[in-house]
């Protein structure tokens, strides 16, 4: 069960996560401007790996290694997407600015997930497009345009 305190912590931590992502995208882009966008993407993943090693050190035992054999191999390509994603972010942010980049990200994410929901990709649950969702997407696009012109 979720207690009131847990709920409050959850609200604060999800807000921190959002702020953290905005800060992280800008940090990575600035690093990319100094050392190169691919190098920045590499270091982001390397630092993430080292940090994860500290957090997970006890969990990375034999059990983890046997678990590694279970997932289908194609799931491992998520890391390739991650690198390309950070790489492109590093390229785009200095050119468009942070707020505009993030609003385009949100807009495309919502559009993409609406389409993915409608089709039901990867055997996930299907959610048909509704009028509400279309109106929502139009509002989002208007918002992006306002920031673009602002």
């Amino acid at each position: 069960m979720t207690t009131k305190a847990q709920k409050h912590i959850a609200i604060v931590s999800s807000m921190f996560a959002g702020a953290g992502l905005a800060i992280m995208i800008r940090l990575n882009a600035t690093l990319g401007e100094h050392i190169g966008i691919l190098e920045s993407s590499f270091l982001v993943h390397l630092v993430g790996t080292i940090f994860a090693l500290f957090i997970l050190n006890r969990k990375l035992n034999k059990n983890f290694l046997t678990n590694l054999k279970k997932p289908p191999k194609y799931l491992f390509i998520a890391g390739f997407f991650g690198v390309t994603m950070v790489l492109m972010g590093n390229y785009v942010v200095p050119k468009l600015g942070l707020a505009l980049t993030i609003s385009i990200l949100v807009c495309c994410g919502l559009t993409f997930s609406t389409i993915a929901d409608h089709i039901g990709v990867f055997g996930l649950k299907q959610f048909k497009v509704t009028g509400k969702r279309i109106i929502g997407l139009l509002l989002v696009i208007m918002g992006v345009l306002l920031i673009f012109w602002g």
Partner: peptide, 21 residues
């Protein structure tokens, strides 16, 4: 779902580091 969510993030970072490296 197979290895735990923190472990999945760890794998993601390892594969990413190797690929970018």
């Amino acid at each position: 779902m197979y290895v735990g969510s923190l472990e999945a993030s760890f794998i993601n970072h390892v594969v990413g580091s190797l690929f970018a490296g």
